[in-house]
Lab assay of single mutants.
Amino acid sequence: PKDEAKKKVKEAIKRGDEETAKRIAKKYNLDWDDAKREADEER
């Protein structure tokens, strides 16, 4: 599900692992900028 994928993307971003985050986002066709902004807001 997309929500689960987005959570994984945000967790990867918070760990500083943007490569993984981008790969997950691409795989699930998520909006990378959107997920990154959300992760930054939660930090």
Rank of each mutant, 00 (worst) to 15 (best):
R43G: 13
G16I: 01
A35L: 15
W32D: 01
K22S: 03
G16K: 03
E18R: 06
K6L: 15
E42D: 10
R43H: 12
K6G: 04
T20G: 09
E38Y: 06
A39H: 07
R43I: 14
D40C: 12
D3R: 07
A25C: 10
E38P: 03
L30E: 01
A39M: 08
A5M: 11
K2P: 10
E38D: 09
Y28M: 03
R37D: 05
K10T: 08
I13H: 01
G16W: 02
D40R: 07
A12I: 03
A25P: 01
A39D: 05
R15D: 05
T20C: 10
I13P: 00
K6M: 15
K8I: 11
I24C: 07
A21R: 00
E38C: 00
K27S: 07
D3F: 12
I24R: 00
D31F: 04
R15M: 11
E11Q: 07
I13C: 02
E38R: 03
K36L: 14
A5S: 03
R43N: 13
K26M: 13
E4N: 08
P1N: 15
D31M: 04
K26N: 10
R15T: 04
E4M: 11
K27E: 15
Y28A: 04
K7E: 13
I13Q: 02
A12C: 08
K8P: 02
K22M: 11
E41R: 10
K6S: 06
K22C: 08
A12R: 01
K8M: 15
R37K: 10
E19W: 07
E11N: 07
A5Q: 06
K26P: 01
R37H: 06
K22H: 06
E18Q: 08
K14A: 12
A5N: 05
D40K: 07
R15C: 10
E18D: 08
D31A: 04
K10W: 13
E19R: 09
W32S: 02
P1Y: 14
K22G: 01
D34I: 10
K8N: 06
T20A: 12
K2N: 13
N29L: 06
E4F: 13
N29D: 12
E11V: 03
D17F: 05
K26I: 12
